[in-house]
Design a protein around this nucleic acid. Structure first.
Length: 275
DNA sequence: AGTTAAACCTGGTTGC
DNA sequence: TGCAACCAGGTTTAAC
């Protein structure tokens, strides 16, 4: 679920209230994808310096205390974060609580593909090898049609798989990769290195407008996602192809198709997205 | 090196 | 109604 818009919506919901908050307690539930990598009580007393984002990861910097550094969080497929003044007793899917003097940040994640990993780094960038291979942020000015085209040119895989890979640009997951390709009129099976410079420019533009629109609508809620205040996203109602197999394309009326690429469902319109 | 499959885990939906 | 099979927003790791 959580692709860049959902993660950024979450970040915006917690950044202001948590800046400067003091850590009171940490509570761990069932194991997540990786162990925390630090004793929970070593983080008690530290101050949250800020909340950043890199791709689909969140970064909470922790200043002072016995273990300065930060927490790298990932929401996996089914994770969401809630910030409440006083959290109710943890349910069966609540696997991490960061209790602060300004409220409790709780990770709820039924499938437990999410992660909370402590790192001694002061900044997100070198915090973890998890961030090492990530491509450019979609709204970074340094990402241009030229550089994007060059990145696509290095890959022979289908463009849909390349978008999910996050080397050319991070942030688009299954929903937004499908939607952006539809907007750009590019067939998902097109080899990335065969995409012309003008079409690469069009695709980058589509990725940006798709992510920006989803951000405006609070992301997509298919099932589990809620923002930090418990609010559903609304983008899913605007999806043109994702999850719409057998239904007519809103633009041309052709029947949306579902195929499988690299173990992931891909939705596209055979009318708008010719090979 | 580069692509593809398997793995992680739970729960909702679909079909027999 | 019961139960097996399939599906889901992601990403690492192992295997060709």
């Amino acid at each position: 679920m959580p692709e860049l818009p959902e993660v950024e919506v979450t970040r915006r919901g917690i950044a202001e209230p948590l800046r400067g908050a003091k850590v009171v307690t940490l509570r761990l539930g069932k194991p997540l994808r990786w162990p925390l990598g630090q004793r929970p009580d070593a983080l008690v007393g530290s101050i949250i310096g800020g909340v950043g984002r890199r791709g689909k990861y969140l970064w909470l910097s922790l200043l002072g205390g016995r273990a300065p550094g930060g927490l790298l969080l990932h929401l996996g497929m089914s994770g969401s974060l809630a910030l409440t003044e006083q959290a109710p007793a943890p349910g069966p899917h609540d696997h991490f609580d960061l209790v602060t003097d300004r409220g409790t940040l709780r990770l709820t994640d039924p499938r437990r593909f999410g992660a909370v990993v402590w790192s001694p780094a002061l900044d997100a960038a070198p915090a973890s090898r998890l961030l090492a291979g990530l491509g450019p942020e979609p709204f970074d000015d340094a990402l241009t049609a030229e550089s994007f085209h060059a990145a696509l040119h290095r890959r022979r895989a289908p463009i849909k798989a390349v978008l999910l890979g996050g080397e050319a640009v991070v942030g688009a997951g299954n929903i937004y990769a499908c939607e952006a390709l539809h907007t750009a009129g590019i067939h998902p099976a097109t080899r990335a290195d065969r995409i012309s410079r003008p079409r690469a420019a069009r695709l980058l533009d589509a990725v940006r407008t798709t992510l920006a629109r989803a951000l405006e609508l609070g992301g997509s809620t298919l099932r589990d996602f809620r923002d930090a205040h418990g609010i559903d996203g609304a983008y899913q109602a605007e999806a043109q192809v994702y999850g719409r197999a057998g239904l007519p394309c809103g633009r041309c009326g052709a029947t949306v198709r579902r195929v499988v690429q690299g173990q992931r469902a891909t939705y596209f319109c055979p009318g708008c997205q010719k090979r």
